[in-house]
Write a protein that binds this DNA or RNA. Structure first.
Lengths: 245, 245
DNA sequence: CGTACTTTTGAGGCGGTTCAAAGAGAGTGG
DNA sequence: CCACTCTCTTTGAACCGCCTCAAAAGTACG
């Protein structure tokens, strides 16, 4: 008769909801993930909380588990620009740097899985494929950033707002499964940003954002649920409006 | 009596002019650099030549040895935006990708040190610190890209043009040596872009760029040498104009 | 129900664009 | 060496999209 083998504890990471999309997805569940699990902790931030400041040293890095984070840069005279948004499974923090070049601020209650900077860099050395994974994430971030340069440099206010809503909708729908021909049915899109924040992201003023959302509503490209939620009847039609007016 | 040892050939890379600033600077001159030297070739491009297209697969990657390259993205209707400029020692090409997400075009005669995509990725695997070096470059590119988002989203035309001239001047002056308190004397600044290209980089029209350069001249912040070269009496004064009008 | 914040709406102004044309270089061939 | 051409640059004038300023309306929360 067999004696029941004790199940090896694969650590807290094994059942993590974002693991399949986070940088740690490249780690072996049984051999490597538990090692990572020993280095990380969870932490909660209230909406509006400054997670990292461009003044402070980068003391920790990690992955967003829940909530939305804005990355923001500020000029000497107070002008602000949102550089990107982080959603669950996205990586937060600049590796190989002493100082964060921008602010990270929670837009809604945020749950973060983080490691101290020193132990995070130790993890990168221990698991080279983790560094490669982070590298690929960084390349994607660079692509997104350059996509947004196109938006900020060349798109009209209408196109910017439509692009923004597409971004939100696509992230909330989850990553596209290979081969599956992304359906075009109605999508509910929650907007975790104020009009002012949207304006900061799009290089506009909140008044212009408000007016453009109004016009998208009246043309039927979006249907208002509340001020912070819209339904998108056809994502492809909205995408169209985001690319050619 | 000693028999003269034959000097080991350290390969063509040993005396490379950009090595101390390129990704390969992390490689050991005698043990590792020759290995890299076996995988790379040089190639010349005439001004205006398309080095990489967003249509083509990424068949090679490399380092700019001479000249200036623009990275450009184009929308369906022809609107264009320059995403970044590459100067000697900068890296060209997107690792870990099948396709380049943008165009790379020579602005002046360009000399490139490149490797085929397959052998480049083999190099990355052989020398993990080469990948780390490239990763750090990518993080810097991301910082620059986000810096430019601030410019495109929030700066006035005057500030944009001043920022652009600062960028050129700083790159042409070479990397800042640690500890050395970068002098503020007159700087000659060559402009390897047409007014139209500058406009594409700054999210403006060429007419606006021309007018703003004119005004910077009349305020004395820059002194015209020719249409494609200016002298900057005080870089810090120009930087000032780039940040707060 | 009142207070504070967010969002919407309105009216007017301005910075940058658009359209048009003249001016300046750089290269070419007679 | 100069006229010719092509491209790039500058300048001018009118226009327009977005911003600014102001106030009302909506929403969240104690």
């Amino acid at each position: 008769m067999n004696i029941a083998q004790p199940v090896l504890d694969a650590g807290p990471c094994q059942h993590c909801g974002v693991r399949k999309n986070a940088i740690c997805r490249v780690l072996d569940v049984h051999r490597e993930l538990p090692e990572m699990g020993k280095s990380v902790r969870h932490r909660h931030y209230a909406a509006g909380h400054v997670i990292m400041s461009d003044q402070d040293p980068v003391s920790f890095l990690g992955t967003v588990l829940e909530g939305t984070v804005k990355l923001e840069k500020m000029m000497g005279d107070g002008r602000k620009q949102i550089l990107g948004l982080l959603f669950p499974s996205d990586f937060l923090g600049r590796a190989h740097a002493k100082q964060s070049p921008y602010y990270a601020i929670a837009l809604e209650p945020v749950k973060l899985c983080y490691a101290e900077a020193a132990s995070f860099h130790r993890l990168l050395e221990t698991f080279p494929k983790l560094e490669t994974s982070l590298f690929e994430r960084t390349l994607e971030a660079l692509d997104h950033s350059r996509e947004w340069m196109m938006l900020l440099g060349r798109k009209t206010a209408r196109e910017r707002v439509a692009s923004f809503l597409c971004l939100l909708a696509e992230r909330q729908a989850g990553p596209v499964t290979e081969g599956e021909p992304a359906s075009d049915g109605p999508l509910v899109c929650r907007i975790p940003l104020t009009r002012g924040d949207i304006a900061e992201f799009l290089g506009l003023t909140m008044e212009t954002v408000s007016r453009q959302i109004g016009e998208l509503k009246s043309t039927g490209l979006i249907v208002p649920d509340s001020t912070r939620q819209v339904t998108i009847p056809s994502l492809s039609a909205l995408r169209e409006a985001a690319e050619k007016g």
